[in-house]
């Protein structure tokens, strides 16, 4: 487990994560500053950004002091020199989730943030191109939300033999 980098915002709660060197919990306000501190500390690459909808898991186990919200944005950063991985879990809000975009720091998150918007409806402010990416343009709803149905069509076998 590594320490938080210099000039991290105050009040960031850290813990030991599974298969990563540091797991941080940030609020919406702390998030951009924290990522900037990590970038200055040598984390060159934002390897992954994704959203999670915890609609049915509002009482999930979190370290003390973290206020759980319905949506989380999970960011994985990579330090290619020291070979360290850091995971940041941002509590992104419940009703109208919106967090700052990391595009200024890591231009490579552009597509991943668009995907999180498309699938969960999480907005990323200051993102240059906040559009859908995977679903058709006129689609309604955000499919990976827990209150969105799977869209399963009941299967009916035609000319199937009757029950034995």
């Amino acid at each position: 487990m590594i320490a938080l980098p210099a000039r991290s915002p105050e009040g960031v709660i850290t813990s030991e994560g599974l298969a990563c060197d540091l797991l941080c919990f940030a609020t919406i306000e702390q998030y951009p500053k924290l990522v900037r501190a990590f970038k200055n500390a040598g984390f060159q690459m934002a390897i992954d950004v994704c959203g999670v909808d915890y609609l049915e898991q509002m009482d999930r186990p979190l370290p003390e002091g973290v206020v759980a919200t319905r949506f989380e944005v999970v960011v994985n950063l990579l330090n290619m020199v020291k070979k360290e991985r850091v995971r940041i879990r941002v509590q992104a809000g419940t009703d109208n989730p919106e967090v700052a975009s990391l595009f200024d720091l890591y231009p490579g998150v552009e597509a991943m943030e668009r995907e999180a918007y498309d699938m969960f409806g999480i907005l990323f402010s200051k993102h240059p191109d906040m559009t859908r990416i995977l679903m058709p343009e006129d689609w309604e709803g955000h499919p990976l939300r827990k209150d969105y149905g799977v869209g399963r069509v009941p299967v009916q076998f035609k000319e199937a033999p009757g029950p034995r």
């Binding site: 599974l18 298969a19 390897i47 992954d48 999930r60 186990p61 999970v74 994985n76 991985r85 995971r87």
Partner: peptide
């Protein structure tokens, strides 16, 4: 068990990760 993990391997096209 309850938890979350990010794990990655090198696929022929680059880092393939699973959260």
């Amino acid at each position: 068990p309850v938890g979350e993990v990010y794990s990655a391997v090198e696929s022929p096209r680059g880092e393939l990760g699973c959260y």
